[in-house]
Nucleic acid binder design. Structure first.
Lengths: 329, 329
DNA sequence: TTGTAAGCGTTATCAT
DNA sequence: ATGATAACGCTTACAA
């Protein structure tokens, strides 16, 4: 391994000078600079990031902590974060928690021990409920899930409004017996439930039903199965995340129940399948690219200005009206 | 930051002893050990991984270099790699190259500078073509794309057989005018083309057509559009990756051409949409979980035995016969 | 069984 | 403008 010492020797200067050239920190004589650059090129020298990190007590890395990178929402976020980080010369450490608080804690610790400069974090339900006491000693941006903590920046969707809008869309299209299926793993499900109920209430209605279940395809499947096999069926199903939407869709297909003729289906998040199936699924599209980018930018702002007070950015969802919820009759 | 020195002081021992306790390296007196453990617990000490890495000249991190984590194939691989790494106490640095050799080189260098212990790598076309000369100074496992290099382990799919089987399936179901669409970004497309042509030849046939295009949805869309608007149409389209499959499917939908009545569609890789659409798409399922796991395991084996000669693991694809290619007529 | 001290590759402070 | 050197936190000969 060629180190700064070798370069110094080759250029006939001290390691300090090489370091200065590298960091572009004057004062430095142009001539010396040239000599050092030549040596660097000739030896094909590359600074050791680990040593630099040890010395600086931080590193050009950020941690990304999410439940599962296979969730299309997080995949998209992950990619956006990586892009934004890359532009600043940062790299991304990927951490999947599986909604498991222990894995989450382990990763948070690991990121700390790795001297990452910052963390972008979608916390589990358990974490959120105790987040008030938590001290983030590394700059952290929370995404997707509301948390009550003074220290962390946040990038969230306006879930209540989004759910309200999605529900109103169903109402406008003539649906009245609307069942709701909500994820029970985060505050997000609760907020979407809120918007759902508000919209119905404002139209003098109550939910046909409202259930909180684990955010998995099979939960959506069983819940929908129960709902649809009853004599008294809903005419629409509202789902609070794309896993549940998929489960409901599968149930409809399994039991040959036509969407939207027999019931309308709406949900959250853009997925490939949701666009490709017939009819395509009406959803609230979250601006994933923007969420990832904003989170990363917030992080970098915080890094350059550590004692700025935390801010929360709330983004709007975008209703994509599609075939799964066209006007009734 | 509480360091090993603080622990040593608190326990009334030297830093060396603390280090030994941490590493569980005898000889160490049980009593001393206890005292050290107590101090560690009391001070809530956590070893600094960066310092450890600098000293050891390696780190418990591996790099994952792929073209795009949003490609469902790589998403699945990424998750499998992360799982396998996690079990060994390793973490994963995520790198997206976008098939861009410069970004690829930059990341390879970065991983080097970060002292990662190993790399799991799906190289660009350009890289592969010069890979013979490349010296991997970090243990590297190549996945998905064949490369001619003596140093790297590899985990590949038997693409020729898989494509052969997929083509034979079409033939068995009565399709004769089969068009092929292949990705031009890697050796993978070439190999699948090979299997495609072989199968046809063995049945005394030639391709209706065979094109190499960039592996993007819109390339698949335009190629399919051209193919399907001609007077003389194929009765089946074979695609070599899921981006192209999606493009062809979209074209069929756009122009209201019925699958499989007017043409059959087959491809590679499991996607959510491919299962959900009607009819579902016949594909060769790659064992993504196994590929990721195997690659990671190969890496760890290599780490514990650095001068073992490189090995290549070839996995078989699994034909999932679905509605998009049912028997003709 | 334990302690001392060198060294991993940088950077920042203080001299010169 | 540049050089010498300490320090970041850890591990590992080597000594005791």
């Amino acid at each position: 391994m060629t180190s700064i010492k070798d370069v110094a020797k080759a250029a006939g200067v001290s390691t300090a000078t090489v370091s200065r050239v590298l960091a572009n920190k004057p004062p430095i004589r142009p001539e010396t600079r040239e000599r050092v650059m030549a040596a660097i090129a000739q030896l094909n020298y590359r600074p050791n990031l680990v040593a630099r990190s040890l010395r600086a007590q931080k590193s050009a890395k950020i941690g990304l902590v999410v439940s599962d990178i296979r969730n299309p929402f997080f995949t998209a976020i992950g990619r956006a974060v990586e892009d934004a980080a890359y532009e600043q010369g940062y790299s991304v450490l990927m951490c999947n928690t599986d909604e498991n608080p222990e894995k989450e804690m382990l990763y948070l610790n690991l990121l700390h021990d790795e001297n990452v400069s910052g963390i972008i974090f979608s916390p589990t339900h358990q974490f959120s409920s105790q987040a008030g006491d938590f001290h983030f000693d590394i700059p952290t941006v929370i995404i997707d899930r509301l948390v009550h903590n003074k220290e962390a920046d946040m990038v969230l969707l306006d879930n209540v409004s989004a759910a309200y809008e999605l529900t109103e869309h169903l109402l406008a299209n003539g649906y009245r017996k609307i069942a709701g299926l909500f994820g029970d793993a985060s505050a997000t499900g609760q907020e979407r439930h809120q918007g759902f109920v508000n919209a119905l209430r404002d139209h003098g209605l109550t939910p046909f039903s409202a259930e909180f279940v684990s955010p998995r395809i099979r939960s959506g499947f069983s819940a929908a199965t129960a709902l649809l096999q009853n004599a008294d069926q809903p005419d629409a199903i509202f789902t609070s995340n794309s896993m549940l939407t998929a489960g409901v869709f599968q149930a409809a297909r399994e039991f040959k129940i036509k969407i939207p003729d027999e019931f309308a289906l709406v949900g959250f998040d853009v997925t490939e399948w949701g666009e490709f199936v017939d009819p395509p699924i009406t959803v609230i599209a979250q601006p994933t690219e923007e969420i990832g980018r904003t989170a990363t930018e917030l992080l970098f702002q915080r890094l350059s200005n550590p004692n700025r007070s935390a801010r929360t950015v709330i983004l709007k969802g975008n209703l994509l009206k599609r075939g799964s919820s066209i006007a009734k009759r």
